[in-house]
């Protein structure tokens, strides 16, 4: 196990973590402020990926495709919020889960009707298709470096927005105590609409960025929603900082579990047992992390509600 291998796995873990962060940031704010469970967040991610792939194929501009996907997804999210989500946020979690799960089913069928059941071709932008020689013996995909950069930029932008702007202050007030914020004259509804749209834009960005390295297909949103939910639970619901730290933790633990656990087990256990146990343990590593965090800090690492 050499240093190059460690560095590469570290980058992989950070990259995966940052993508989870883009998805989890919107989810955690919506849950934190409005106490609303939005399972359809994964569908927004899927829609973003499809639109980006389509626009990229037609226009040839990847950056344009990403912005187009974000804009279109924000419009869709706006309509969704007006028609459905606004009506259910005062109800119980069960109603919210059922309603937003319904949206997932409808979204999947709509995507199937528009783009067909087969996965869609989402190509890597030509300029970023090859590897970059990061160190003498470490070629690293240029596209993954771009993903790292985008993830870090968004994290920085969100930090500035939430901690150093007026709207950010309202968001934090809403997250820590919604009733009190309303008493003090904050129009939480308006803040919520803004957060919902922002979350949708980030989900679409994540979808558009993930497209070239993963399958753009129906159900892709549900597959990534589960790790995103793990992230917001670990981070503390409603906290951007928590989501950031937790996303990096989950990314690193998941990658490390897959990269180092099977070889380590093979060194100490009989091969047949190690072959069975290694992948199984690697698969549950992030859930073990979640359980451990919840035992030590039941409200997550950085709870928004003190």
């Amino acid at each position: 196990m050499d240093a190059i291998f460690l560095i590469e796995q570290l980058l992989n873990g950070l990259g995966y973590g940052l993508m989870l962060f883009l998805l989890a940031a919107g989810l955690t704010l919506v849950f934190g402020i409005m106490d609303t469970m939005n399972l359809a967040h994964g569908s927004l991610y899927m829609v973003g990926a499809y639109i980006a792939a389509q626009v990229h194929e037609r226009s040839g501009s990847f950056v344009g495709a990403v912005f187009m996907a974000m804009a279109a997804t924000v419009v869709i999210a706006f309509v969704l919020e007006m028609l459905v989500v606004r009506r259910i946020y005062s109800r119980g979690h069960l109603a919210q889960v059922i309603a937003t799960f319904g949206i997932i089913l409808i979204a999947d069928d709509l995507v199937k009707a528009i783009w067909g059941p087969a996965p869609m071709l989402a190509s890597t932008p030509a300029a970023l298709a090859g590897p970059v020689q990061l160190l003498a013996e470490l070629p690293y995909p240029a596209y993954r470096l771009a993903m790292l950069a985008v993830g870090l930029l968004v994290a920085l932008g969100l930090y500035l927005l939430v901690n150093h702007t007026r709207i950010g202050m309202l968001v934090r007030a809403g997250a820590s105590n919604r009733a009190m914020a309303e008493c003090m004259g904050v129009r939480v509804d308006g803040v919520f609409s803004f957060i919902f749209a922002l979350g949708a834009a980030l989900a679409a960005l994540a979808g558009a960025m993930m497209g070239p390295i993963s399958a753009v297909q129906i159900g892709m949103g549900e597959a990534i929603l589960i790790p995103a939910l793990v992230v917001i639970v670990i981070g503390g619901i409603g906290s951007i900082r928590g989501a950031f730290v937790a996303a990096l933790l989950v990314g690193l633990v998941d990658t490390a579990g897959r990269a180092f656990l099977p070889p380590a087990l093979r060194a100490v256990l009989p091969p047949a047992l190690a072959a069975d146990l290694g992948p199984a343990l690697a698969g549950i590593a992030m859930y073990v992390l979640m359980a451990a965090v919840l035992i030590l800090k039941p409200a997550g690492l950085f709870p928004a509600r003190a």
Binding site: F5, Q9, Y16, A223, R258, G278
Partner: peptide, 21 residues
């Protein structure tokens, strides 16, 4: 090496690094 991954895995960077090594 013989690598087993999770069913439905999205990110294969960790496995690709193992192959490179």
């Amino acid at each position: 090496d013989e690598i087993y991954t999770k069913v439905g895995q999205i990110d294969y960077a960790a496995e690709i690094a193992q192959i490179r090594a």
